[in-house]
């Protein structure tokens, strides 16, 4: 996003909580857990978030972008696939 125009002024919230919704904390935890357990790498996660279609990306909140990345990697890496016996 570096150098792009048109994103307006900053909104600075004083005394901001770490997360604004419980699901955001869950998304944060999911990503941390997946990274730490080696399900995917940080680069893969960044690539998954950055490859969102631009319109979707711009319309999504920060943790919605993360959720998109996690869902995509869970699919791509077959994390939910049942392993043979």
């Amino acid at each position: 996003m570096g150098g792009q125009h048109g994103f307006g002024s900053l909104q600075i919230e004083s005394g901001e909580p770490p997360f604004h919704h419980e699901w955001e904390a869950r998304v944060f935890a999911l990503n941390r857990f997946m990274l730490r357990s080696g399900r995917y790498t940080l680069d893969e996660f960044r690539a998954a978030v950055e490859s969102m279609p631009p319109a979707e990306y711009l319309a999504a909140s920060y943790y919605e972008r993360w959720l998109h990345g996690i869902e995509r990697l869970v699919r791509e890496k077959g994390v939910l696939d049942v392993r043979p016996g």
Partner: peptide, 11 residues
Amino acid sequence: PTWYKSDAYRS
């Protein structure tokens, strides 16, 4: 903080 992650700050 949210502002650090915002499109406005990053751009």
